[in-house]
Simulated assay, not measured.
Amino acid sequence: MQDVLHNISQCTICKAHLPFGPRPVATAHIDSKIVIIGQAPGTKVHESGIPWDDQSGKKLRQWLNVTDEQFYNTENFAIIPMGFCYPGKAKTGDLPPRPECAPQWHEQLLEKMPKVELIILIGAYAQKYYLKDNAKRTLTETVGEYKSYLPKYFPIPHPSPTNRFWRAKNPWFEELVVSDLQERVKAVLK
């Protein structure tokens, strides 16, 4: 595991496309029980090197009902984004995660974590990559059908403040789905 994480930390395969240069952000442990697969680090995470060290991370930890200590304990959570480095700014929000990372590194990481019981797929990029043809037409439909992907995968929307409009239009997610997510996370971590 340490060799793979070291190799990721030295990765430069998409260097030419990164506005701030490479700074891969990923955490994992051989005993990780839950894997969080999000999009890519934002500027704050690029600066700190700490995954989910921003407003999105605060909301995500609320949804999971875990403390910072639980969340950053790699024996609990591995954090593997679709793109390990900040991809740059788009008109609204950030650019999509670089497509090189997941095929290059995800399988190598996942095969070294035999105790994983749950993979949380955050956002459309992770859901399309992992659910493939089983992903629904839209993120809303995929998240709405989350039970059909259990017990392995749990698809959720991105917790970004820019996603507040989606959450306002889909109150059922925080009213119904989040409690099930919290129960599953609690059961895995106990």
Results as ranks from 00 to 15, higher is better:
Asp68His: 13
Phe84His: 12
Glu75Leu: 01
His17Leu: 11
Thr27Gln: 08
Pro97Thr: 04
Gly144Pro: 10
Leu109Thr: 12
Ile80Pro: 02
Ile156Thr: 08
Pro159Cys: 13
Thr12Ser: 07
Trp166Met: 10
Val178Tyr: 00
Leu118His: 03
Met82Cys: 00
Ile80Phe: 02
Ile80Val: 15
Lys15Gly: 06
Gln2Ser: 14
Leu109Trp: 01
Tyr125Met: 07
Met113Val: 15
Leu18Asn: 08
Leu18Val: 01
Ala126Glu: 03
Lys186His: 07
Gln10Tyr: 09
Pro24Cys: 08
Pro22Leu: 02
Glu183Ser: 15
Asp94Thr: 12
Met82Arg: 04
Val116Gly: 10
Asp68Lys: 11
Ile8Val: 13
Ile80Trp: 02
Leu110Glu: 14
Ala26Asp: 05
His158Leu: 01
Glu117Cys: 11
Ser56Trp: 01
Arg184His: 13
Asn73Lys: 09
Cys14Trp: 00
Pro151Gln: 05
Arg184Gly: 09
Glu107Asp: 14
Tyr153Asn: 15
Cys101Thr: 02
Met113Cys: 09
Lys33Gly: 06
Glu174Ser: 11
Pro114Trp: 02
Leu5Asn: 15
Leu150Ile: 12
Lys152Cys: 07
Lys59Thr: 14
Pro114Met: 01
His29Tyr: 08
Ala102His: 09
Pro51Cys: 07
Ile34Tyr: 05
Tyr72Leu: 02
Leu131Ala: 04
Arg167Val: 10
Thr67Gln: 13
Pro41Gly: 07
Ala126Leu: 01
Gln127Asn: 14
Thr43Leu: 10
Lys132Gly: 00
Ala78Pro: 09
Glu100Gln: 12
Ser48Gln: 05
Lys15Thr: 15
Ser160Lys: 04
Gly42Thr: 13
Gly144Asn: 15
Ile8Leu: 06
Ala16Trp: 02
Val45Ser: 11
Gly38His: 10
Thr162Met: 08
Glu141Ile: 02
Pro171Phe: 00
Lys147Arg: 12
Lys33Glu: 09
Ile79Lys: 14
Gln182Ile: 03
Met1Asp: 11
Lys147Asp: 05
Ser160Tyr: 01
Val116Phe: 03
Ala126Arg: 04
Ala40Arg: 01
His158Gln: 04
Ala28Ser: 13
Cys11Tyr: 02
His29Asp: 15
Ala135Val: 07
Ala40His: 00
Arg98Trp: 03
Gly93Ile: 05
Pro161Val: 00
Ile119Pro: 00
Pro81His: 07
Ala40Lys: 09
Glu47Leu: 12
Pro22Asn: 02
Ala187Val: 03
Ala78Ile: 03
Gly93Ser: 11
Pro114Thr: 08
Phe71Arg: 13
Phe165His: 14
Trp105Met: 12
Ile36Ser: 09
Asp68Trp: 08
Gln182Tyr: 02
Phe165Asn: 06
Pro151Asp: 11
Ala26Met: 10
Lys59Val: 12
Tyr129Leu: 09
Val4Met: 06
Ile120Pro: 09
Ser9Gln: 04
Pro41Val: 06
Pro151Arg: 10
Asn65Trp: 04
His29Asn: 15
Trp52Tyr: 15
Lys44Cys: 06
Gly88Thr: 13
Pro155Gln: 10
Ile122Arg: 01
Pro161Lys: 11
His158Ser: 15
Ile36His: 03
Asp54Pro: 05
Leu121Gly: 08
Asn7Lys: 14
Thr138Trp: 08
